[in-house]
Design a protein around this nucleic acid. Structure first.
Lengths: 342, 342
DNA sequence: TTGTATGCGTTATCAG
DNA sequence: CTGATAACGCATACAA
């Protein structure tokens, strides 16, 4: 890095002290209008920019927030990130995006960002594989600067913003019941995820509500990948009684499943109806377009940031904010659901 | 942030100077085995971790690299990021992922990361909207620490790793010619992208190679979104002569286009053949699975990191590395191409 | 092989 | 309203 101008250079040029320069830059009210302009002119003239490392060292805060996603290639996270980024930027926070790739070692590296001061807090969109509870609480509030989004680590008091996955799954499954389906299968999410159980429970709940039973083998293992959905589709065709509808725990699996069915000559929704979860971008483009559960991704991001600011005790934080935020979901009806075949 | 133990605490506990602690941690060879263990024991005992800000300030380097993507929700970038992350991590570099959202203001914020020392270099997977040439060259090598991936900003000497988009597009289009198509349309990428022109030129080149002409209106505007592909599909149906094949400048548009055709009762590939570009994950899942051009995304990431290390003059950098790296692409044949209807 | 001393660029404290 | 000054935690040049 070339030698960049420092606050000293600005001070010299403006004929003031470095303290005044700092104030002119960060506490506009505390300096006379005259010196303010002199300082700003000098800044412009020599092209001064703040040295972040020095500021972070001195302030003992990075003004940076970490976001850990399990798979950056998954489109679901894009809009959540957008929401986070916007809200964080408005609050003067930089966000660092990290892809844990579901790998504990990688996640441990990102956890270290909080210890070594690279970031002041972390958003987890992934199921934690390392001990984020080891993060030191913020002195001002006594809370750990870790916010979970969508995922649920443990029941205890980790701040969290999410939709009610169980209720959403119940609604999704009930939608199939409402279309007249009586034999409904479920493709589950992977173990070691906070999402598997609540989505499964919602499915069971909806069946119970309708007085339906789960036939043996109708709860099919999946791992949220399209490939696992395809495998589930193949498995499903061998089932007796054959399901007339399937609730997939996410859209990727729904897409893979529909593809496998199509290759076997089974049409959706004429022969089998399918509901997904997440409303990823491709759910709308797919043939057929997929009926699914939409989560308010952008809002989840902005709410999570609000939560974080409160935890950090930053200015402008809403002190009345609850540490568990449950946001509304929506069933998006498209073309993958129809009546059961006669 | 709670008061964390510093190198001083470690020194005190180990009974050595801070300089020795620093050396024990970073220059293992330069310290006796005995003190090394004493220091490491002390580190473990009090749970010391390096303060990144202090190190960055002192070393005048962040050991962090920025990656700017135009849209984090686009699956294409995921694997490139994975490649970058892996190689960067191996070289002891942290990577910061940034979503410019195609917005110049956002991009300017990220550009400032290089000025204020948050990052030492940047990878651009986006067409630059701000003046990255204003980044100061690295003293050791005289090169600017900016590497473009896939995109081309200007012809001049910005280091770059990419496939030959023109040649790849030529191959993609020639594939349609080889299947007997004589009337082939093209859906272009958006203006203000480095990708629009080369992919268009490859298309034209392939037609010229085969002695074919471009009919009026057969060059359809798109913007890389599925929605624009759908519009293109609708437009295409009104064309005379009607194309029997289309080369779409990316997979998203191909997907949107096929969807629009399907809704109009036109089947792919029976009625119209389609080739895409990028080989995003959904290209393989789609119905029909899409024939497309695959780019070695992961390798693009690792090569870009190698280039960056060379520019930064970091250890282990391959000094013989060319500043323009053209990587091989591949035509992936799937189900969206067939012979023209009779 | 180890220690001493210094400065990286800021901001907060304390006087004035 | 402004200035002088002292850290923040670390790594390096120089001495020993």
């Amino acid at each position: 890095m070339t030698d960049r101008p420092t606050i000293q250079d600005v001070a010299r040029l403006a004929g003031v002290s470095t303290a005044t320069v700092s104030r002119a830059l960060h506490e506009p009210g505390k300096v006379s209008a005259d010196t303010a302009t002199r300082v700003h002119d000098a800044v412009r003239q020599i092209g001064y920019t703040l040295n972040i490392a020095a500021q972070t060292l001195r302030q003992r805060r990075a003004n940076a927030l970490l976001v850990v996603v399990p798979d950056i290639g998954n489109t679901f996270y894009g809009e959540v990130l957008a929401g986070i980024e916007q809200a964080a930027h408005a609050a003067g926070q930089t966000i660092l995006i990290a892809d844990s790739a579901q790998d504990a070692a990688r996640e441990a590296v990102y956890l270290s960002y909080l210890r070594n001061g690279r970031a002041d807090g972390a958003f987890l969109l992934t199921y934690p594989q390392v001990d984020w509870d080891s993060v030191a609480p913020v002195p001002e509030t006594g809370l750990r600067p870790v916010v979970m989004i969508s995922e649920a680590a443990r029941l205890e008091g980790t701040p969290r913003v999410t939709v009610d996955h169980e209720q959403a799954s119940r609604v999704a499954t009930a939608h199939l019941v409402a279309h007249g389906h009586r034999v409904i299968a479920h493709v589950l999410g992977p173990r070691g995820t906070g999402l598997r159980r609540p989505r499964y429970r919602g499915y069971r709940q909806a069946l119970a509500d309708a007085g339906l039973i789960v036939h043996p083998g109708h709860e099919i293992e999946g791992d949220f990948s399209a490939a696992s959905g395809a495998r589930a589709g193949a498995a499903l065709l061998a089932l007796t009684p054959r399901p007339t509808a399937v609730f997939c725990a996410n859209d990727e699996m729904a897409i893979g499943l529909i593809g496998a069915l199509a290759r076997a000559g089974v049409r959706v929704p004429q022969d089998i109806s399918v509901v997904g979860f997440d409303d990823i971008a491709f759910a709308a483009c797919f043939l057929p377009a997929i009926t699914t559960i939409h989560q308010p991704r952008r809002a989840m991001g902005t709410v999570a940031v609000a939560l974080m600011l409160r935890i950090l005790g930053r200015d402008g934080a809403d002190a009345s904010l609850q540490m568990l935020q449950t946001l509304p979901f929506a069933l998006i009806q498209r073309d993958s659901v129809g009546p059961p075949p006669v």
